[in-house]
Amino acid sequence: MTTRVADRRPMILRVVMSSFLVLWLIVAAFPFLWTLWGSFKVEGDFFSKADWLNALTGPLTIAETGGSFTSSGYYGAWVQEEFWRAAMNSLTVVVCVVCISLTFGTLGGYALSRSPYRYAFWLLLISLVFRAMPPITLVSGYLLPFFEWNLWGHLPTAIIVLVAINQPFTLWMLTSFFRNIPKDLDESAMMDGCSRFQAFRHVIIPVMWPGVITTGLFSFLLAYNDFAVTAMLLSKENQTMIPKIASFLGTTQTKGNVMFAVSSVISVTAPLFLLVMFFQRQIVSGLTAGAVKG
């Protein structure tokens, strides 16, 4: 493909731009690759006092385990420290949060997108304010009542709290998706004999799948990545992955524990990698959906 004369950039500009981009790619990707590589070494290599190159070659790993790679960090975390339990908890929380968020959010977002009245605007504005509030401020509001009513520590509590915290964002995103669906569609369904809800279920939802999937991805990320709520509201046996990693850090004195954290960090990041790989287009479109409508 040849560029037309009008689009040609000066040489210097092209060089500067390209080298900046290469630099950015290194900055963005290198930490992950480095940690992935290091997660198969022992602590003495990952944090090497002698020479940073040890993290690459791993002389201590060879000395301690006999091979240049070891999965002892993963074994320690997943089996010894029962990280699998946290992973199961995370899975429960994330699946429930995504499903409930989407159910509530599609209903609410549809209503907001189709109501011509002023209160719809006010509700959106209020949820924008809710979106602005740091989750930890809400957590400090939950603790006392949850202790009183014995709600603290259970998975369902954390799930419904995460659903609620996700709602403002979910509503905004889905409302902007629903607004892109012509009103003619639900109106013709209603003329054809549907009630509002039937029109929503039979006609709008089938068209909305891309938007629902995109919003679901972001609900997933919010629930999966949450630390403030899950760390404060779940008891130790119900802990999800992220607070579990944080708890590894509290006990770094024990030798090898850091490697538990490193290996579980990689374990947590791997699904996110796959997510970006498969859903890159949806993530990009989701991010822009809100912005375009502004």
């Binding site: 013709s188 369904a189 003329m191 009630s195 068209v207």
Partner: peptide, 20 residues
Amino acid sequence: LEPKDRDIAMVFQSYGLYPT
């Protein structure tokens, strides 16, 4: 009455066909 109970059919400007 709701639209569905009025026994009316309507053709919309952009047709309102169900794309799926």
